[in-house]
Structure formats: C-alpha cells, structure tokens
Amino acid sequence: MTSTPNTTFPRMKAPARGRMLQWIRCNRPSVIGVGLLVALVVMGSLLVPGFISVQNARSILLLAAFLGLASLGQTMVALLGGLDLSIPYVIGAANILLPSLINTGMPAGLAMAILVLAGLVVGALNGALSYKLQGQALIMSLGFGFAVVGAAQIYTTLGSAVGGNVFAPIPAWLTNIAAFNGRFFGLPIPPVIVIWIAVTVVTLFIVRNTWFGHSLYALGGSRVAASRLLISEFRTWLAVHAISGGMSAFTGVLLLGFSGGGYVAVGDPYLFTTVAAVVIGGTSLLGGGGGYGSTVIGALVLTVLTSLLVGMGMSFAAQQAVVGLLIIPMVALYARTPHIRSQI
C-alpha cells in the first residue's frame, strides 16, 4: 500500500509464510493503519447507531478527500524531513480570493486556475526562502503563511465594505463538485471524492515512475549520498513546496464549493490535521520512509476517528484534544530519533 518505490524484483523463492511475514514487516505502517481503520469502523458500528450507512460513508469520504488533497504537499515535504505550516493559510487565502475574483466578473474556472497557479508560485517562494534554514524551515513557513493570508485579506477587503468573509455567486458546478449531495455523472458521489482518487492514482504513479519521485526518497534517506548521485536538494525542496502551495490553493477553492462563502479561517484545522494524517499514515517525519499511499490511509483513519468522536457526542474541542494526544504515540511508532549514545 505504501508508495515507497521498492520495485519488486525477480526474487529467490521463499516459503509462502516467510514471504507473508516479510511483506508485513516491510509495510508495517500500512498494516497498522489499515488495522486501525478496521478497528475504528468496528467500534463505530458498535457504539454509534447509523455509523455504517451510505450517508455516513459518503460524508466521511468527502471530508477525507479535502484532507487528503491538502495533505499531499505535506507528505512530500515530510519525505524530505520538513514540515509545511503555511498550508492552512494558503487554503484560507485561496478560499477568500476566489469569490473576490468571481466578483470582478472573471469566470470561475479561470479564477480557480489562476489561484492554483498562484499557489504553486507562492509555495515555490516559500521553498526558496526556507531552503537554507533546514531545521527551522517550518517556522519560516508559518511566517510565510501569515504574510500570505494577511495580503489576501487586505486585497479582498480593498473593494468591499466589510472585512473578513467574502461572498459571491458560486457557479452550480463548483458547488456540485464539493457539496455533500454532489453528483458525479448521475451517481450520488460528490465529484471531489473522484478527484481525490484520481489525484492519488496519478501521484502514486508519478512517485513510483519518475526520477523526481525517486529523488524524494533518496534525499530523505541520505542527503549526502543523494548529492553524490547528482540529485539537487534545492530543486526537489522547491518542487515539493510548490506542490504543497498548489495543492493547498486547490483545496481552498474546492472548499468554497463546500461552504458556499469565502471564509479565511476555513483552512485553520488543516494546520494540524495535515500533519496528523501524514504521521498516522506512517510517513516518518525524519524523512525517507512512507509516502502518499500511507497518507491516504492516515486521512481516512483521522476522518473516521473524528466521525466516531462526533457520533459519540464529543465537541470539536474534545476531538482536537484527542487527535493531539494521538500524534505522539504514532510518531513514536515510526520516527523515534536515535539515542545520543548511538551518535558518537
């Protein structure tokens, strides 16, 4: 399930049971993730009436799709050993800029394309500025996010009488893509879920089959060794941040269809849920291990968990606290830093 590009290679015959164990050991995070997912679904079906229903499955998938799309960039940045904390702010900025652009009379499709492109550029800029900071890059991305969202809010407020939220007539097709009751060619599936599946397939394929994808894992594993193979750390760092910015903007514009009005704080939950999805999926935050396949599982686990907690009557605040508590044991499972004794 992970997208670690470990090509299966014509191998020597091993006994079937040994191979099974081997496979489990290689894909331990995915096995744990799927196990967690199954356990949560079972718990949900026992504890929450109506948990197993088409309605609930659809709403879980819808929310997981937004989270999954927003976490794509975070996964790639994490594969290099970094974190991008600008994601929520770029989402928020795109979310208020889209109606603002629509209000100028621009076609919604064009506005969306422009915003995704702008997200790519902004992300690349973030990458360029934070490259030299390494361990402190996430603080830079935080500051960068603030600057972006501040600028976007100033821009949207310029022409309007009220600050903050922005409203515009949203085209029906955009609402259909992201709304709970959206339909995909007549099927009762919100198209954003289909988009997420498509993005996942394309991402997994690209990571597995391109030099860029292999560079990610090489750099995450060993920077020096990667540089000896002429893999440019700077270019890869720039690229993952650009992807992160672009995907954040994309999520932001899709969320407009979901919520119906531009609201800058719409991205706020994604500050930590993207990190949580990456971590729960099993991508090591030290770089090198995991992948988007893992994050897909992580996003599903997180969304099912949230749905379960909501079903049990927990407030949003309590959900946040639970997810916060969950992060440390999950990281401890996959990415403990080595003991100082072994570093001398």
Partner: peptide, 17 residues
C-alpha cells in the same frame, strides 16, 4: 554518510545510480 540509502531496497540502492 555518503553511500547507502538506508530506507531503500538493495535493488533501489544500485538502480538509483
């Protein structure tokens, strides 16, 4: 330090070059 990629397979370690 400057040779292997510890997270990758034997094959990938050779093929990356």
């Amino acid at each position: 330090r400057e040779g292997i990629f510890p997270d990758l397979s034997v094959f990938e370690n050779l093929a990356l070059g």
